[in-house]
Amino acid sequence: MSMPSADNATQVNKLARGLIYIVLILFAIYYLLPLYVMIVNSVKPLSEIREGNMLALPREFTLDPWYTAWSTAQIGVQATGLKPYFINSILMAVPAVAISTLLGALNGFVLTKWRFRGDNLVFGLMLLACFIPFQIALIPAARILGMLGLAGTTRGLVLVHVAYGLGFTTLFFRNYYAAFPTELVKAAQIDGASFFQIFRRILLPSSAPIIVVTVIWQFTNIWNDFLFGASFGDFKSQPMTVALNNLVSSSSGVKEYNVHFAGAILAALPTLFVYIVSGRYFVRGLMAGAVKG
């Protein structure tokens, strides 16, 4: 047997590469299929869907289902569409993300640069919060919200999400700041900067990657949360996810699949938007926290 020539080797290489690409493209199509079905069916009239071909492109293009889902669909008592619930979700998610991220950053700062006796124990206990299932916390959380008079309000939901997210945000920032040079903090101390000045002027400006990671993580979790929203929100503070459920699973009248599809996409848009805008920092930030510390 002769040795395979270099020419031969490159050809085999090309063939293998082609095969890999074909497999990857098939996977990509497979993964994108649900999104395709959702989008295609959200712009069809209901009659077209009834004909049974979910995969076909729309013969008649219409944005009515989107309009209906957004502002006129019957959810709960009134025909308000998803709009007020979307606003509820924004009012809940934005402060919850901001507060939990800020507190996580402060925790990380203290746990790495202002260490005290027993700091590792405190960090361990906070980490434990990441492993507690939602369901366990439901009844105690309901009790506390009741005692604080926050039951059924958006502020109550913000409090629950902040408390629940704190474990994760602390973990992210602690690991990130563990790799942050302590000499910088010492230099700032000699320059006379106070605790909060050091935090605001030295640490925070260097924290962009981990802030992005934390914001994406927290926003996705809080926006997509159903259990807390369903348990602690009333009809004035229910988030988007609960409203979407009510829209889809309402038992009266005709099932308007096109409206359901449009509503589901509307519910997913904000997290998609956050991810697309800051996604490239996401991996970078995760790595920055992961390699050191």
Binding site: P181, E183, L184, K186, A187, A188, R201, I202
Partner: peptide
């Protein structure tokens, strides 16, 4: 400082 400890931002 040994690492200079210049504020990077």
């Amino acid at each position: 400082f040994q690492s200079y400890a210049l504020y990077p931002n």
